[in-house]
Write a protein that binds this DNA or RNA. Structure first.
Lengths: 128, 128
DNA sequence: GTACATCTTCGAGCGCGCTCCAAGTCAAGA
DNA sequence: TCTTGACTTGGAGCGCGCTCGAAGATGTAC
């Protein structure tokens, strides 16, 4: 995470104004770092900035907002679960297609341009 | 996938000019649809358009490009695997934090504002 | 015949999330 | 003392991936 990004996060309210050294330079506390790490983790899993802003805002308001914050996290967790499923499906599809490419390469190596089997279109995804 | 997106994909070369009805309207063949579905799957797993363009380009050149195409897919599959790991970690972290919120809510319900235990900072991620 | 919907084209616009630049301040090292 | 480098600020710019709008042609229903 670059300094530019940290400034940006501060500007848009994801990070509260942080402590400064005597010369005005920012000094991040361990709590700041933990929060930033959390933000990073949420961004890395595609939580929109808007949603993170909402969450940060509620966090400033204290424990009374626990329920709403929990809901945000639960929703995001559901999003993550869905993403994992999509990624796993794509992963499986790619395994299939990569194997197919290996077959094609094999066919080229042994100089056997045609298959007696019906042509395997490497781009056709299996229906599964 | 919207019509706008399909036009866009055609413009940028992800889809070859497709067949037309007598009135000029596009008619997608089953092969077209399979290819588009594949594109969709790759986009849904965060393959950049540029990379898809490269792949599409090689695909036009036929079997001789099998090796390079395979490499693209293998790289993307590795990307996907990494994404899955990140998502799974975030999922676990959220499970932890959500449980923590439930505790806080419980504490509020039974009107017990303080814990004898050291304060649990709900934003601190577990080091794991 | 006449609405109306649906397609066509091209180009412009937009939302997101950074990313960078310019000008200035300060601190330590040669 | 002078250079260097790391920080400060505000605002502008950018890359990506769509997304939309306008103007026009065509087909279907009443």
């Amino acid at each position: 995470m670059t300094a530019h990004t940290l400034r940006y996060y501060e500007r848009v309210g994801l990070i509260q104004p942080v402590g400064r050294a005597h010369n005005g330079h920012r000094r991040y506390s361990e709590a700041d770092e933990a929060w930033i790490q959390f933000l990073h983790c949420m961004r890395a899993t595609n939580m929109p900035i808007r949603e993170m802003q909402r969450y940060a805002e509620l966090r400033e308001l204290g424990d009374a907002t626990s329920l709403e914050r929990r809901k945000i996290l639960e929703d995001h967790q559901a999003e993550i679960a869905a993403q994992i499923v999509a990624l796993q499906q794509a992963h499986a599809l790619l395994t299939h297609k990569i194997a197919n490419y290996r077959k094609i390469e094999q066919r080229i190596r042994i100089n056997s341009p045609a298959l007696s089997e019906p042509e395997v279109d490497c781009e056709l995804a299996p229906s599964a």
